[in-house]
Amino acid sequence: MSIETSEKLKLIRESERMNRRQFAELTGIPYGTLSGYEADGKEPGFNAIQKIFSQPRFRKYRDWFMFDEVSPESGQIAPVLAHFGQGDNGLPPSDQKTG
């Protein structure tokens, strides 16, 4: 399952609890350009990707972003995908309550 680049950028930003303005300021990518990546589906170039992953805060998502791979033992993870919900695994819902 490959996710569009625009959605990946948004997931990284939201997982870090940042708004577009904060993400743009931290990475040095102009706000309007970032908005174009996320909302209009424009593909970021090498320089933009380099700006993002030169930030230590985002390096943990690099393998997931580039290759759709994670390696937790190496510190490479995927952002929280909670807003995608659970996939259908064919099992009936649990009657267990959480929280």
Rank of each mutant, 00 (worst) to 15 (best):
M1F: 15
S2P: 09
E4Q: 15
E7T: 12
E7L: 10
K10R: 15
L11A: 05
R13C: 01
R13P: 01
E14N: 12
M18D: 01
M18T: 00
R20C: 05
R20H: 07
R21Q: 10
F23K: 01
A24T: 03
E25T: 07
E25P: 01
E25C: 01
T33R: 13
T33Y: 07
S35F: 04
G36F: 00
Y37D: 00
E38V: 00
E38L: 06
A39M: 09
D40V: 03
G45W: 11
F46R: 10
A48K: 04
K51I: 08
F53M: 00
F53C: 07
S54R: 10
Q55C: 04
Q55P: 01
Q55Y: 06
R57F: 01
F58C: 00
K60R: 07
Y61F: 13
R62F: 08
F67N: 11
F67A: 13
V70M: 10
V70Q: 08
P72R: 09
E73W: 00
E73A: 05
Q76A: 14
A78E: 11
V80I: 12
A82N: 04
H83S: 04
H83I: 06
F84S: 08
F84H: 13
D88T: 05
N89Q: 08
N89L: 11
P92S: 06
P93T: 05
S94T: 15
D95Y: 11
Q96H: 07
T98W: 10
